[in-house]
């Protein structure tokens, strides 16, 4: 089982790398047919990734969402899923050229972590684990897509070959709107993650909020996106400022995920 999971995980890595390179070729060659190949490879990678996660879950006899390797892999899966949803929904393959490298970096980070399957400590043996972590994956994935869209927004005017870009990248207004939609989806799921986490923490640790670094940084991330969405809805902040906020927000997400785990250990140190 573990061997099969390793094989599937390696294939996933290769598929995401291939998808990323084909997206680059699509932009360089300016051929629509190439973008279809890239999206197909990306989707195939997502399916194999799903299979790898399922196989690990069967091998571990539990949800594979409890350590650095498992969460990084699931994070990459969430980003891959949300970016593909946006690529297909908005017919926007250029998004893949920016989202695939981020996905590849995260799954690369997963590859560097220990893959050993450990038994769950009693605190993690809860039905809330699946709800809490899976909503976090969707939240992080959505913020990742919002970040990528923010980068595209900021780079749009700096990129050459206007004709091709105008054809394949939505105009700034729509780009801004998609980024907002993605951040809004992330905000909704982050809130859900924090609520389910609080309910679970209360049952496991006797306190639903204890200012653990992970909790605190989730709150910081929530506030950053709350400010962004507030300014956008109430003050009409659009475009460049919103794109910069989307980038800052994702930096907070990454710090909450990687930075807190490595620099600020707390009760979430296993995640």
């Amino acid at each position: 089982m573990i061997h099969l999971e390793n094989v599937l995980f390696t294939i996933t890595l290769i598929m995401y790398l291939a998808a990323m390179l084909i997206y680059f070729v699509f932009i360089a060659a300016k051929k629509d047919a190439v973008s279809k190949v890239a999206v197909t490879v990306h989707i195939a990678g997502l399916f194999i990734h799903t299979a790898a996660i399922v196989v690990r879950g069967i091998a571990a006899g539990r949800l594979p969402l409890t350590n650095q390797y498992e969460f990084a892999s699931a994070f990459a899966w969430g980003l891959s899923l949300v970016s593909l949803l946006f690529i297909v929904k908005f017919k926007f393959p250029v998004l893949g050229a920016f989202a695939a490298p981020v996905t590849f970096l995260i799954i690369g980070y997963a590859a560097m972590q220990s893959k050993t399957i450990h038994s769950l400590m009693p605190a993690l043996k809860s039905g809330w684990l699946g709800v809490h972590v899976s909503t976090a994956i969707i939240a992080y994935g959505s913020f990742g897509v919002s970040f990528v869209l923010g980068i595209i927004f900021l780079l749009r005017d700096k990129l050459k070959d206007r004709g091709f870009l105008d054809q394949h990248i939505p105009n700034k207004e729509k780009l801004d709107l998609i980024s907002y939609r993605s951040a809004a989806l992330g905000m909704l799921f982050l809130t859900f993650t924090m609520i389910t986490g609080a309910i679970w923490a209360e049952r496991a640790w006797g306190s639903y909020w204890s200012w653990d670094p992970k909790e605190t940084w989730s709150l910081v991330t929530w506030i950053v996106y709350a400010v962004y969405l507030h300014l956008r809805i109430r003050r009409g902040w659009r475009g460049r400022s919103a794109a910069i906020f989307a980038v800052i927000g994702f930096i907070c997400v990454m710090f909450t995920y990687v930075g807190v785990n490595t620099l600020l250990p707390g009760v979430h140190s296993y995640a």
Partner: peptide, 24 residues
């Protein structure tokens, strides 16, 4: 509204700093 945004930003900064200092 503007004051609320300022408060949220201050709260985020305060939380970030406090999380970097070992408490208690």
């Amino acid at each position: 509204m503007r004051f609320a945004i300022v408060l949220l930003v201050v709260l985020a900064i305060a939380c970030s700093i406090a999380s970097l200092v070992t408490q208690g």
